Amino acid sequence: MRVVARGGGRGGGCEKGEEVGRRWSEGMSPEVLALIFGRIPADEMSRTVPFVCRGWREAVLGPYCWAEIDLEQWCRRVNRSDVIDSAFRRLIRRSRGNLRRLSAYRLGNSAFSYVAFSARFLNILQIPMSEVTDQMVEKHAQSLLALTVLDISYCLKITSKGIESLGKHCKSLIQLRRNMPPPEPEWSQDGTANAEVDESEALSVANTMPRLEYLELAYGRFSDCGLDAILTSCCYLHVLDIRGCWKVDINEGIELKCHLIQSFKGPWYDEYEPVSSDNEDNNVDGVDDAELVDVDATDESNDETW
């Protein structure tokens, strides 16, 4: 949906657009208009809708259109934390404390503090690859009491300290995404690659987030010890993704616990691995062209989604 106000000279087209907008929205409350405008991308709604008519402008400048702010795709195009923070501060002020969901990318400390200030009703916070630090998280975590869904994937300045602070205060948290980039290997003298084990983040999750139902920890650096702590403490888990956690061996005792989880993706999980049957030839040469086309189509679909 794209809303554009066009004018054709002094007063003519603009007055007609104003009249059409006034008639169309006459009698509609700001809450209803906000539901209608919810189909428009947030950045486009901010730039175009206010110029159609006075009623639309008042609705967009009010709090109801900004209970949910999803600007992740716009943030990816801009890719500048200072510009992103400035935009979010402006929109968060418009929400007037009614913010319930925020999705951003490369959010900085400045905007995060604004989020916390308006976080009384905030349920969903998705800020992958943001510049937010442990210090800022520890300072404001007590304001995020209503959080149920949190995505802090690739937030390299947040460590186990920030995760622990979030877990201690966000008691309603049921979904956590904490995927990280693959760790840089450390080469031993015999030429083999080793990554240092770090259980701290896994233990922070286990010790402070027992109500989790959905957990992603791709490329975490924990071992069986950290995984076992999570499986023991987080009894409500039905989705667990630890792809790329190569220090996890999954011994026999842990494997039994993993089987109890409805959806489990282990360290070496490959979603494109073909499912074989007794009648299938597992030789790669036996794959026909149609099957190859299907795999390519799947890859392209996933790229577009990402």
Rank of each mutant, 00 (worst) to 15 (best):
residue 89 R to M: 09
residue 113 S to K: 13
residue 102 L to G: 11
residue 96 R to D: 12
residue 95 S to V: 10
residue 83 V to T: 09
residue 77 R to C: 10
residue 111 A to K: 01
residue 120 R to V: 15
residue 79 N to R: 12
residue 76 R to W: 08
residue 94 R to V: 04
residue 97 G to P: 02
residue 84 I to D: 02
residue 119 A to H: 15
residue 114 Y to Q: 11
residue 76 R to G: 11
residue 120 R to H: 14
residue 84 I to K: 04
residue 113 S to Y: 06
residue 104 A to S: 03
residue 115 V to D: 08
residue 89 R to P: 04
residue 79 N to S: 10
residue 105 Y to Q: 13
residue 113 S to P: 01
residue 86 S to R: 10
residue 108 G to Y: 07
residue 109 N to I: 03
residue 117 F to I: 15
residue 89 R to F: 08
residue 72 E to L: 07
residue 86 S to I: 03
residue 116 A to Q: 13
residue 110 S to V: 13
residue 77 R to I: 00
residue 105 Y to V: 09
residue 111 A to L: 02
residue 94 R to L: 11
residue 100 R to F: 06
residue 118 S to R: 15
residue 74 W to C: 12
residue 90 R to K: 06
residue 83 V to I: 06
residue 86 S to L: 05
residue 96 R to Y: 01
residue 102 L to C: 11
residue 109 N to R: 02
residue 77 R to Y: 01
residue 110 S to N: 06
residue 111 A to W: 00
residue 105 Y to D: 10
residue 95 S to G: 03
residue 110 S to G: 06
residue 86 S to G: 09
residue 116 A to C: 13
residue 73 Q to F: 06
residue 109 N to W: 01
residue 87 A to Y: 01
residue 98 N to V: 00
residue 80 R to P: 01
residue 116 A to N: 06
residue 73 Q to A: 15
residue 89 R to I: 14
residue 96 R to C: 06
residue 110 S to Q: 14
residue 104 A to R: 04
residue 93 R to D: 04
residue 92 I to P: 00
residue 78 V to M: 11
residue 93 R to I: 05
residue 97 G to R: 10
residue 80 R to H: 01
residue 94 R to P: 00
residue 112 F to Q: 12
residue 105 Y to P: 06
residue 108 G to E: 05
residue 110 S to Y: 05
residue 117 F to D: 15
residue 87 A to C: 13
residue 80 R to M: 05
residue 98 N to P: 01
residue 81 S to F: 05
residue 96 R to L: 09
residue 119 A to M: 15
residue 82 D to V: 10
residue 87 A to D: 08
residue 74 W to A: 14
residue 87 A to G: 02
residue 96 R to N: 11
residue 85 D to L: 05
residue 78 V to H: 07
residue 103 S to Y: 02
residue 118 S to M: 14
residue 117 F to E: 15
residue 86 S to W: 01
residue 117 F to Q: 14
residue 87 A to I: 11
residue 91 L to N: 03
residue 87 A to V: 12
residue 118 S to C: 15
residue 79 N to E: 09
residue 96 R to V: 00
residue 99 L to W: 02
residue 90 R to D: 01
residue 88 F to R: 00
